[in-house]
Every structure is written in structure tokens, then in C-alpha cells.
Design a protein around this nucleic acid. Structure first.
Length: 488
DNA sequence: ATGTTC
């Protein structure tokens, strides 16, 4: 039996519009499906990975790729793979190193332009209070072992209860209520715990950011109203994950699963890439990874929640406004690196599935009881960050996403240039100055991250979300333009 | 993404 391998061209045929199929071949259990503006490049290694993922034991329907697909560890970023929750395989590479990396948007009642004179002071205060960079720590006092257990079990709610919040109902406005069931703090190693204990409330590095944005355009009046968005509004956007704790959980799981892969049976032994290391969902190793991954996801939610509290406090104190005048509340919080147990309609019946979303955002449609009540007529908010020099988008999930993508959408702009190539092109330039000239204040620890993260290193996220909107997978609701960016 | 090769 042949298998899809790196370096080969994958076969592609157009299904309709921007939707393309990689027909089943070799050991693929299901076809691949790729959302792409125009024909995908057949030698794109990310497409080979889409075909590789289609070999996963228990995979259902398709191996999916969103329009921001990009080569990653084993699985592509921008990929979705749903497996049978009883007989399928769980794979750490299908989640990624940054477990529950995700995005949240906090809305306010303030007009963004009106606070321009205070913008620098505000950004500087946030930059002071939210530690940034690779090894960032000490946003709040180091967690005791007992506190860390609580964070790992309770997620966002832990931080809300300790006063880190926009409003009292923040956790209800997170996907899954800001907490994954099944999380077991005891499944998180001592080393992962050590790394996490001083990192709650820290931003991290790379594409992570905390932004002050202005609602620049409304695409859908009714949905924007349901989401509490209006033109000119100041909002806070946070993109971060589970920091060193999640990295350690992923790293240890891969180290445990990779050497055992063949022992799980012929389907596992035949996987075309060792980076697809996985285990049966019900195996001891699979269950342990799931329990640790769920705990790391809860850490990430608590992390974004603490940063929310720090940012809201900075707004209140720097602007000298009351809680009521600020009117901060969480619009929504999505994870885009996670595997989740969900019920989906498969072949005419409801089935329990484990959906791996790696660089992909849940996008549940209207009427779904898993969408918070205020948004249920519209569909869940789908938060898609762009690059720091252009814009980000708020979309809404759709019924079509439920049918065609296990309720999933894209997650961001997707890299255009490697980090190295971006740095070469940034040499001799001041990216901060270039952004300042365009009215965007950026505060970052060093020049390196700014070079790696400059606009031209990324695809235009407007083109990515246009594919999702055109295919009916998510609907455009609003565009957010950055005013001030805090980076690692 | 990541105490960026414990």
C-alpha cells in the first residue's frame, strides 16, 4: 500500500468555488478538503500533511484545511480532523505545542478616537502590567501547588472569582464556559507545573499580542448588535495561550507516544509520518494526554482571563473612568489549538467525536445550544486576528459549518514569509516607526519579534476570511483596526 | 508556539 509522503504532488480537484478535494489515495481513510482562494499549489507541504492526516485511525468524513493552512508539526496549522470518540486516535500534533492558544475580544462603551491623547499612557501601562516575551513571568504572585490545581481544573472561572475580569459573566462568554471537562491536574507533570506556576497572566512571544482596537467597519448590522459592537468603539483583543506549561505537556506526550506508535496496531504502524504520533482515545496514554491537554487548556483560559483583568484595571485607572463608563465586557473567547469531545451529525446520526482543531476556530451556527444565549440566533462569535499592521475580523458561525467542517473555521492570516526571511527584509528598518507613521503604536521587548511579525510576513487576513464568508462557513460581522499593540 | 537545542 502506498501512502502520501512529503515531496510528492498531491492530486487535487475542484469541488466548487474555493473548495478543493484531495481524493482518497494510498492509505487515506477519507478524502482531504481544502478551502483555498484559487488552486492550491500541489507541492505545498501543508497539503501533503492534509493527506497524511487522512490516515489517522478513526478519522471521519474528511481531513480539512482552512484557507490559512500552513505547514506544521505533523498536522498542518489550519487543519481540522474529527475522529470517532471511542475508536479513534488522539494526537498531540493535531493540537499543537501551544495548547488552547486562542483569542478574546473585550468590548467597551468608549469611542476609540476620543482617547487618542491618552493612548500612549494606556499602552505603556498595559505593557508594564502584562509581562511579555518568551520567558515572561511574575504578572501575579507565583501560584501555590494548590492554586495551580484549581486553575488547571477551573479555567477562566478561577481568575474571574479572584477579580480578574471585565464583567462577572466573563466565563459564560468563553467557548465551553472557559473550562474543559475531564481536566486532571495530576496528569500534568511536575516540570510542566513548575513552568506554569509563575506564568499566569503573561502574554508570551511570537504572534501573541494584546491590542487596543477600533471597530472600523460593520459588515452585518444585526449580528454586530447581538455581539455588542458599534462603529468607532474601543475594544481590547488578546491572543495568547498556555505558555510553557502547555508546551511541556505537548512535548512530553509526543515523547511518550512516538516510540509506542506501532504497538497500537497496524493502522498506527502504517502512519506516513512519525510526527502524527497518536494513541487510541481510550488507551491509558491517550486518556492521560487528553486529561493533561484539557488541564493545559484551562490554564490558557485562566491566563487570558488574568490578562483581561490587568488590561481592564489599566483602562479604568489610566483613563479615570468608572466601571459603568467603561462598560467592559467579554464579547467571546475562542480556542484555536485544541481537541474537543463534541456531538456532531455524521452520516445521518449524532455521534460523539473528538475534533482536533489546530490553527482552526470553532464556528458553531445559529440555534446551537452550545452557543451562549445572547448569540444563539446569530451563531457563535468567530474571532480571527490579522497581522499587527492591518486588521482583525469578527465573524459568526453558520449552519453550513456544522454540516461541512465539524463547525470549524480559519484562525488567522497565515504566514507568508518564514521568520528568517521576514527578519532579512526588516533589516535596517524600524518596524515600530513604520507602524507609528500609520497611527499604530507598538510596544515590544525587542526588534526581533517586530521584524518576524511585520505585516508583509503575513497573508492579508481579509482574503482569508473572504474565503470562509464566500463558502458560507462563517459570516463577516465586523473589522477591527489596531490603535496600540503590545507584543512579546 | 517554546526558560526559542534539558
Amino acid at each position: 500500500m502506498t501512502t502520501a509522503r512529503q515531496g510528492e504532488h498531491v492530486p487535487l480537484r475542484r469541488i466548487e468555488g474555493d473548495l478543493w478535494e484531495i481524493p482518497r489515495h494510498g492509505g487515506m481513510k477519507v478524502p482531504g478538503r481544502v478551502y483555498s482562494p484559487g488552486p492550491p499549489a500541489p507541492d505545498d507541504p501543508a497539503l501533503q500533511q492534509v493527506a497524511n492526516v487522512a490516515h489517522l485511525p478513526g478519522i471521519l468524513r474528511w481531513s480539512l484545511a482552512m484557507p490559512d493552512v500552513h505547514w506544521g508539526y505533523g498536522f498542518p496549522l489550519g487543519g481540522v480532523a474529527a475522529v470517532d470518540a471511542e475508536h479513534g486516535a488522539v494526537s498531540p500534533g493535531g493540537v499543537g505545542y501551544d495548547i488552547n492558544c486562542g483569542v478574546r475580544v473585550v468590548t467597551t462603551r468608549l469611542d476609540a478616537e476620543a482617547l487618542r491623547p491618552r493612548l500612549h499612557a494606556l499602552a505603556a501601562r498595559i505593557y508594564r502590567d502584562v509581562p511579555t516575551g518568551v520567558g515572561a513571568s511574575a504578572a501575579i504572585p507565583r501560584l501555590t501547588s494548590r492554586e495551580l490545581d484549581e486553575v488547571l481544573a477551573e479555567g477562566a472561572r478561577w481568575a474571574v472569582a479572584r477579580g480578574f475580569r471585565a464583567a462577572a459573566d466573563d466565563a459564560d462568554r468563553c467557548e465551553e464556559g472557559g473550562r474543559l471537562a475531564g481536566a486532571d491536574p495530576a496528569a500534568v507533570s511536575a516540570r510542566a507545573r513548575e513552568r506554569g506556576s509563575d506564568q499566569l497572566g503573561t502574554l508570551g512571544s511570537g504572534n501573541h499580542f494584546l491590542e487596543l482596537d477600533r471597530v472600523a467597519r460593520i459588515h452585518d448590522d444585526a449580528a454586530a448588535e447581538a455581539f455588542g459592537l458599534f462603529p468607532g468603539q474601543l475594544v481590547v483583543q488578546i491572543h495568547s495561550g498556555s505558555r510553557g506549561l502547555g508546551y511541556q505537556v505537548c512535548d512530553e506526550a509526543l515523547a511518550e507516544l512516538a516510540p509506542r506508535l506501532a504497538s497500537y496496531g497496524p493502522d498506527y504502524a502504517a502512519l506516513p509520518d512519525r510526527q502524527l504520533a497518536c494513541a487510541p482515545v481510550g488507551s491509558p496514554e491517550g486518556r492521560r494526554y487528553l486529561a493533561a491537554m484539557q488541564a493545559a487548556a484551562n490554564f490558557a483560559w485562566a491566563n487570558r482571563q488574568v490578562m483581561t483583568g490587568l488590561a481592564v484595571r489599566a483602562l479604568l485607572e489610566t483613563l479615570g473612568v468608572s466601571d459603568r463608563e467603561l462598560g467592559a465586557r467579554l464579547l467571546y473567547d475562542v480556542c484555536h489549538n485544541v481537541a474537543k469531545l463534541e456531538d456532531h451529525l455524521v452520516d445521518g446520526g449524532v455521534r460523539r467525536v473528538l475534533v482536533h482543531r489546530k490553527g482552526a476556530t470553532r464556528a458553531f451556527g445559529p440555534g446551537d445550544p452550545r452557543v451562549p444565549a445572547p448569540y444563539r440566533d446569530v451563531g457563535q462569535p468567530v474571532l480571527i486576528p490579522g497581522d499587527m499592521g492591518r486588521y482583525s475580523y469578527v465573524l459568526a458561525g453558520t449552519e453550513k459549518a456544522m454540516r461541512d467542517t465539524f463547525g470549524s473555521s480559519c484562525h488567522g492570516a497565515g504566514r507568508l514569509l518564514s521568520r528568517g526571511e521576514a527578519l532579512r527584509r526588516a533589516r535596517g528598518r524600524s518596524i515600530a516607526r513604520e507602524l507609528a507613521d500609520r497611527g499604530i503604536e507598538v510596544l515590544a521587548r525587542g526588534r526581533k519579534t517586530l521584524g518576524e511579525e511585520m505585516s508583509e510576513a503575513y497573508k492579508d487576513v481579509a482574503q482569508v476570511v473572504a474565503v470562509m464568508d464566500g463558502a458560507g462557513i462563517s459570516r463577516l460581522v465586523a473589522r477591527l483596526d489596531p490603535l496600540a499593540v503590545v507584543k512579546g
